[in-house]
Amino acid sequence: MSKLIMFNKPFDVLSQFTDKGTENGPRRTLSDFIDVKGVYPAGRLDRDSEGLMLLTDDGRLQAKISNPKHKMPKTYWAQVEGIPDAEAIRKLQQGVTLKDGITLPARAQIIDEPVHLWPRTPPIRVRKSIPDTWIALTLREGRNRQVRRMTAAVGHPTLRLIRAQIGAWRLDDLPVGQWSEIKE
């Protein structure tokens, strides 16, 4: 039976098990949190993004989750600068023109701050004169830094980004920095 692990990746952690480091020394990786042998990430999550990652020892499952041709939906919570109006949300829903082409249509809506949210270290920059808003975006493609580029393209840069769901797997109340094995 294959292993499948859900992990709530903290901010500033690489989505790989090893790192050659930088001039400032080694960076935190998955190996600082997960001690299970033989599992590998099914997809990536940028170092400055947080939330749900899936890891497995099953190559076929890994490909199904991470390969864009399968178009597995992924839901993100984005804390954005400003308050998006109906037109900005409509643009996100219909597809946004980026340097590498138009994105596929996405589900997009303004949401309340997520319930089980943990504090981010370090916290986001806060500007008293500019409010922020949480939006939920569900994508069926995975371009590099896509959510951040989409929100910036509609005039609302992302301040914090959390992946909340991949397919049927949901982050729910899994604590940041913790993992759990899913029994299939």
Rank of each mutant, 00 (worst) to 15 (best):
K128P: 12
V36N: 12
I135A: 12
R149M: 06
H70W: 12
L14F: 07
T158S: 01
L139D: 06
G82Y: 11
G51T: 05
P41R: 12
R140Y: 11
L117M: 00
A88S: 04
V176I: 07
K91R: 15
P131M: 13
D12N: 12
P84W: 12
A63T: 13
S66L: 00
N67V: 09
D173Y: 02
R148L: 05
R148T: 09
V36M: 07
A42E: 02
D100H: 11
R163T: 01
L61G: 02
R107E: 14
N67T: 11
G167K: 15
V96H: 02
T151S: 07
I5V: 03
S180V: 08
L4N: 07
G177W: 11
L61I: 04
L161Y: 02
I89S: 06
L161V: 05
D19W: 12
K20I: 10
I34P: 09
D100M: 07
T56W: 04
G95P: 07
D112Y: 07
D172W: 04
Q146A: 05
V176G: 07
D12Q: 08
G167D: 14
R148K: 09
R44W: 06
A78K: 07
P175A: 04
W77M: 03
W77V: 03
V115D: 00
I182Q: 10
K74E: 08
W134P: 14
F17D: 14
L139G: 06
F17E: 14
I34Q: 13
E87S: 14
G101H: 04
W179G: 11
V39Y: 10
A42M: 01
P84R: 15
Q178S: 13
V115L: 03
I5N: 04
E23T: 11
A136Y: 02
T121Y: 02
Q62H: 05
V147E: 00
R27I: 06
G59A: 14
L161K: 05
T158K: 04
P84V: 11
L52I: 02
R143G: 07
E141V: 08
T97C: 08
A86N: 15
R143M: 04
Y40A: 13
M1C: 11
W169D: 05
N8I: 09
L117V: 00
K71H: 15
S180T: 11
S129W: 12
Q79R: 15
Y76T: 05
T121H: 03
F11L: 05
E23W: 07
T138A: 02
L161N: 05
L55K: 14
A88Y: 04
